[in-house]
Nucleic acid binder design. Structure first.
Lengths: 214, 214
DNA sequence: CTCTACCATTGAGAAAGATCAACGGCGGAG
DNA sequence: CTCCGCCGTTGATCTTTCTCAATGGTAGAG
């Protein structure tokens, strides 16, 4: 896996204190595992460009995609010195990495991470509501609204860079249930499927109602 | 609700910069709603003593307990200037509150919050795995292990300060399913129920296996 | 151009959990 | 002390989602 295409020292978050804790920018292909759950947690990372998913596994192989990340989001968090999640790119991405020790030395970095952690924690709270209390159809509606930037015009079509299995692992469903939910949304006219991975939201109002005011 | 019993200016995190952003410690009775989802987010809070649960509601009344907090944990997070969750005490608690602006002025506070956010984000990742991929029995086992401090001796009994409904709302189940799971764990000898809210873990190994190495 | 993965869709049957309902116990109010 | 109300338990049934299985589409390799 780890098909890191390019690595260069970062022009990102450079500051006088950072002499021995350099930031590095990685350019990574799609479908690359950037880090592994359980590995020693040496660095903390930010998505600069692209999309990354964080996953956790149960011993028997059940998988949960715990978070979907875009530009600005932070990952590589540690519990007991080990990464709590694996991270895999969904699209070609640029990732900025920092020594963990830089957190104590670089207040600008620390402040940015603090703001971002707060945002990501709020998103996780919403996701808990989705996973704990929403039906399959509601989950898929929520997922599509979350991907579709608010200001996006009605005509624009959304490209999904996830398979049905990945969406299912994110929403706590099976791939068949996700597929059925897509078909149901299409049948109700809330959504148009140009291709399996090309979606247009037709009736945003009904989608929002389904997703519980997302 | 809001039965605040006592308020006093905090001896907590006092620092020279904090002249106009004082910390305040609140002493709060059990079963008190400390803040409401949607209210303007003016302050950020830390649990000093006691236990707090964060909840979110869907428009039709379905509820999810998104996080359980103990001493050191932070809440009062905001999305768009409004609290993302309601917060309710489970036991009599002491809560320290800070102006949000203190975050920019008090680096000690900011550093503490950064560490805590990272820990809470990791816990939320685990919880997503629980909600998305675990069976009812596994969820309840996970819940009990999470409450039972690691070092706790076999003989010690755990007091649950949550009703079956609250546990269900935390685990994404119904209260009946939670009750059945407790009975099943008892029947299998993994747990002893002295009273409905008094539990002893009898077979920690089997519990850990059920909970997927929690 | 064709073949071949892989991915998505759809259907039928099974299982887990939700819902509806009745009963029992414990604790606080009077 | 007794009553009443809330909470928990258990049972029966129903719904949703999972599981298993077959079929169809699409994109990349040869």
């Amino acid at each position: 896996m780890r098909q890191i295409i390019e690595e260069r020292t970062g022009s990102f978050s450079r500051s006088p204190q950072l002499v021995e804790a350099p930031a590095a920018n990685l350019r990574v292909a799609a479908h690359t595992t950037v880090l592994h759950e359980g590995d020693p947690a040496r660095r903390i990372m930010e998505v600069v460009e692209g999309a990354v998913m964080l996953t956790k596994l149960l011993p028997d192989g059940r998988r949960q995609v715990v978070e979907l990340l875009g530009p600005g989001d932070v990952f590589g968090l540690a519990h007991d010195e080990a990464y709590a999640c694996s991270a895999e790119t969904l699209t070609p991405s640029v990732i900025s990495t920092h020594e963990r020790s830089a957190l104590e030395r670089d207040p600008v970095l620390a402040a940015r991470l603090l703001r971002r952690f707060e945002a990501q924690l709020c998103v996780m709270h919403s996701h808990a509501l989705v996973l704990g209390r929403m039906s399959a159809l509601e989950r898929v509606a929520f997922f599509l609204l979350r991907l579709m930037p608010e200001g996006m015009v009605g005509g624009a079509t959304l490209h999904l860079s996830m398979t049905r299995q990945e969406i299912a692992d994110f929403l706590g469903l099976t791939l068949e249930t996700v597929s059925r939910a897509f078909s149901e949304l299409k049948r109700r006219g809330l959504v148009a499927l140009l291709r399996a991975d090309e979606v247009r939201i037709q009736d945003r109002g009904s989608m929002r109602r389904l997703a519980g005011a997302a």
